[in-house]
């Protein structure tokens, strides 16, 4: 047993292995993808069963709102990626500013989403509403899926915001710095996941009609 062996695999509680930490994060992201994957299966099956009605129902959604939200979310992914570059170069306040920008954009996304849902509720398109129940089954399922999938996505946006806010605190206190930023990378990876799920939701609900 040589001393080099001890160096190669140091103490379990204090060791640092960024590759391993990111591996754990990637595994977690797989589980999130599969979670949404279950929803995408349900969507695919019902779209196949009710093609014409899904087509019809999709015209109720506002493409402009969806597009604006897509741009907002893509930009937020850019700012969070830039924050990592900033921290790599040791620019602490710039990194904090960029994470803050991401949070502002995320909030803008949610506000936009709120008004969109609110509008749907006003015209009576929500689960169990008298108007929706009288529509064809495909339309009922389309809006059921719309609320569940965008709702679950919005929940992930909120979780992502909490994660990034904590990361901002870590940058401020110096826990995340030029020499150690794997936490910020993990947070950013999560944010990109939120983004990429939207990239699939957007065409499935807004563009396919």
């Amino acid at each position: 047993m040589s001393s080099h062996a001890a160096e190669a695999a140091p103490h379990g509680h204090t060791h640092r292995d960024d590759v391993g930490s990111k591996m754990g994060m990637w595994l977690f992201l797989f589980t999130e993808l599969i979670l949404f994957g279950g929803m995408f299966i349900v969507y695919a099956v019902y779209r196949y069963m009710h093609q014409a009605e899904f087509h019809l129902a999709a015209t109720e959604l506002d493409r402009l709102v969806g597009t604006v939200n897509t741009i907002v979310l893509l930009t937020s992914s850019l700012t969070v990626a830039m924050s990592i570059t900033a921290i790599q170069e040791g620019k602490k306040s710039l990194a904090m500013f960029l994470v803050g920008m991401t949070l502002v954009l995320a909030l803008a996304f949610l506000v936009n989403k709120y008004f969109e849902w609110d509008h749907k509720f006003t015209v009576g398109l929500y689960p169990g509403s008298p108007e929706l129940v009288n529509k064809p089954q495909g339309v009922v399922l389309y809006f059921g899926l719309y609320y569940v999938m965008t709702g679950l996505h919005a929940l992930h946006v909120i979780i992502g915001m909490v994660v990034l806010a904590v990361m901002m605190g870590f940058i401020r206190t110096g826990t995340i710095h030029k020499g150690s930023y794997v936490r910020l990378e993990a947070g950013a990876l999560y944010w990109h996941l939120v983004d990429i799920i939207w990239i699939f939701l957007f065409p499935l609900f807004y563009l396919l009609h």
Partner: peptide, 17 residues
């Protein structure tokens, strides 16, 4: 909670799914 209908046959949902 909400009666969305995804698995409810009366609203078009599919229990086999």
């Amino acid at each position: 909670w909400f009666g969305v209908g995804i698995f409810d046959p009366t609203l078009g949902g599919d229990p086999v799914l």
